[in-house]
Amino acid sequence: MPRPATDAVGGAGGPGPSLPPSAPVARRRSRRAVGGVGPLGLGVATLWLSLIVLLPLAAVLVSSLEGGLAGFWDAVSSPPAQRALKLTLTVSAVVTVINAVMGTLIAWVLVRDEFRGKAIVNALIDLPFALPTIVASIVLLALIGANSPIGLDLVATHWAIGIALLFVTLPFVVRSVQPVMLELDRDAEQAAASLGASNATIFRRIVLPALAPALISGAGLAFARAVGEYGSVVLVSGNTPRNQVASQYIADRIETDQPAAAAAMSVTLLLITFAVLLVLRVVAHRRTSREG
């Protein structure tokens, strides 16, 4: 029996006021009497999302275009802006590649290998998600700061930014590849082995293609996170104009009262992030339509 596709009045589902039994209910075609969300609930939800999320972002967009497209372009193409953007994208890309490789390797070890304490290692992966970013920053500072126990003072270098981003983006690839690897059809691998394929060939021809969508998705999310990362970088980068990521550049502009420059860079970062996420969505969509 097809379910009606409409809203309802005085629905029992939402925490909206219910109509007294005798109150006349506006009649309309195909309305659902119970279990829906009334127009009131919908209005509250819309208002909330608009106030908290949409309006602020709209303010950024409008501010970035206060000087017109030319002003926007000037702000984004100024040498310090260009330097920050280039640094951010380069380091993020390198970090994404490293964690794509290491993340896949860690996922493989967690799924196919057996050793004592595996459950603890598995839980440890989520640590960067759970740890506040500023704590990550100070934690890494202990490792690669002036008092480094391994004699590695990397503060205020590109390396420091890279290590901070490696830390915070570690879980993405592991957590997206791991479940797919668990579901992997081992029969296909055994069939390939029985046909004489080496492990390297099996990995390249059988395993990797199966993992690819999850790997791309995890790497994309990691890249999107890296591009906007602020807290973990802030203490280790030294925040010199030479060694400043895009988010630091934005914070810097707003502190020095250059809102238009801050807004323009913000919009640029948002566009990059959305582009990455859009590509991921297309990849995921193509995958489901191919396998479905």
Binding site: P56, V60, T133, E229, S247, I250, I254, A263, S266, T273
Partner: peptide, 8 residues
Amino acid sequence: SPVIVGVS
């Protein structure tokens, strides 16, 4: 990015 949230 959190910084963009703040700026916005």
